[in-house]
Design a protein around this nucleic acid. Sequence first.
DNA 1: GTTCGGTGTCATGGA
DNA 2: AGTCCATGACACCGA
Length: 695
Amino acid sequence: MKYLKPWWSDGGSLFHLTILLSLAELRLDLDLDLDLDLYLLFPPRTLLGDELLLRNGQTSHISALSPFPASGGWGRAELLHPKCWERDPAAPPEGRLLREVRALGVPFIPSIRVDAWLVHSVAAGDADGAHALLGAAAASSAGGVGAGVEGVSQAAPGGGGGPRAVQSSPLAAGEEEEKAPAEPTAQVSDADGHASEENEVLRGVSHSPQHEENEQRSSTQKEKSLQQKNEDENKVADKPAWEAEKTTESRSERYQNGTDAFFSLEDLFQLLSSQPENLLEGVSLGDIAPLPRSINDGMNSPTHYNVNFSEAVSHDVSLHEAMLRCSDNTFRRDPVARTLQPQEQILQLSSITNTEQTLPGTNLTGFLPFVDNQMRNLSQDHLYDLDINILDETNLMSLATGFDPMEVSWLLEEPGYDSGLSLDSSNNSTSVIKSNSSHSICEGATGSSSDLSHHDLEGAVGGYCPEPSKLCYINDKSDSHFHGDLVFQHVSHNHTYHLEPSALESTSESLSMPGKSQKISRYLNDTDRNLSRDERRAKALHIPFSVDEIIRMPVDSFNSMLSRHYLTDLQVSLIRDIRRRGKNKVAAQNCRKRKLDVILNLEDDVCSLQAKKETLKREQSQCHKAINIMKQKLHHLYRDVFSRLRDDQGRPVSPNQYALQCTHDGSVVIVPKELMIPGQKKENQKGKRKNERKN
DNA sequence: GTTCGGTGTCATGGA
DNA sequence: AGTCCATGACACCGA
């Protein structure tokens, strides 16, 4: 798969496109990582200093670009967090876009401006040829060039010299004659450096004093700017790409004055579509992130082809300005409503980036496939899968608390508020922002230093470095910070009971959000689910030890540790509570385990005893049976003996009158029952009765 | 909505 | 006296 060849990257600048890519709907409100993977169609360095206006009014800037190998200047634009600019003494002054935006009275326009300095690949000093080329391209656009070619057609006198110049250009736009309309528009002929009517429309949405002043200045500097322009182009053509950066500001100034040359998107469309084979040479996809659509896709689309760009894109094209021109006046006139309706912005962006109808004449889909795809990916993959309610909550919380939405979003994700102790997460949020600027979200979870090694973070609560020197600001917590930490105590289960109820009530009342607590609690549970409450508390208070350490440490080490580190009373109290609770928790677990073991053992004993009882019962019954058998045998033997006994006269002995009795020597004698021992007499009587009953 | 098991926590007593 | 441990009691959560 081929990629668009930056055929303009090695020559002087001819075009100046300003495209406002509405990135407001990116996850800037929640995701603090401003490192946007935005692949631009423009040469690097020319984007430096461009700004991204955040919802909170801060600005971010595009930092150094990363040009792709063999892309001839195409690169990856990175946005720099404003915090970084604050630390950078060489930070550029307030950019033009921001000034313009503020002049328009739009306080929050989270958009990114991309100035594209399209440089034609002409030989050094051959700016006229480039002008001719672009003039031809401008002339080739069907009546929709508008003011976008101003300066270009002047550089190529007559504007009709396009075909000849195109043939001499490396683009070899031989097909230009086929696609080019016969006549350039009147606007083309008028494009001598003056701002066109459309330019006026686009830039004059709100005639700020600054704009008027710029227009006045522009009229006086026209001639000079034209001369300067040619000179600058020749200079730029001899300079490497990064040196062109130095001229960006001056270009912007001239742009503001309306003296620079501009070119419409349609011109570029015509130009690119006329030479697709040339444009798609040399740059492989491997150099650039894979994108599903090449520029040819946009070019070949009739929808893209037939778009009249002259209406909205002719001079200084911006999606935002185009949006301003659209019927959605609330975007400009009601910044508050815009601030409060991120979803609508998202939908706006979606409609803009996905449908050409929203912006007639502004077909970024075809012209900027990379940007378009990025926007699509960002808007669809990252935005639509977001729970919009989070945005709502964030904004509502930001309104309620006066906090920054980013901070509020962080607060929502920080589940440490169920602690009965005062926490410090407002400081955390700030630290998070700082750490995010260096792409260390995880490390910045507690706002600690980003220079911590992963080992240091492992097991340590919140990744805080235990060095005393880095613990100094622990004591800098103000009560207000703690107050902010108590915000969400009411939304989560609080297992601690030693916090003053007044504190909880005050914080809950100040920020109570009926109907939101459940959802917030859900997010709280989702985010730091793996952390215990004490861990979150320690994390919030920047306890420089892990909970595991605090609990398992021997008492001597524990005391020495407390004495070594300078900790606040609150921290010491928390640490002792953590230790006590941790140990008690383990003890309770052991106790329950032992109790369970005792119960199980008792159950086993019961089972074994029941089994033994059954066995004994069986043995008892067997013994009873054996005894009965022996008794019966004894009775039979008794009867048998008496049946055979005879007295002195030879008569049978009656068992009713006599009984058999064993003597001490083992002999058996016949004894009259009257002479029997009373005990033996009773037994014999019992036995006799039994035998009688049986019989 | 109720029940029940699991869990954390506190209070208390003994070692 | 301080600490640890064991345990009953309570509250909360989730199934």
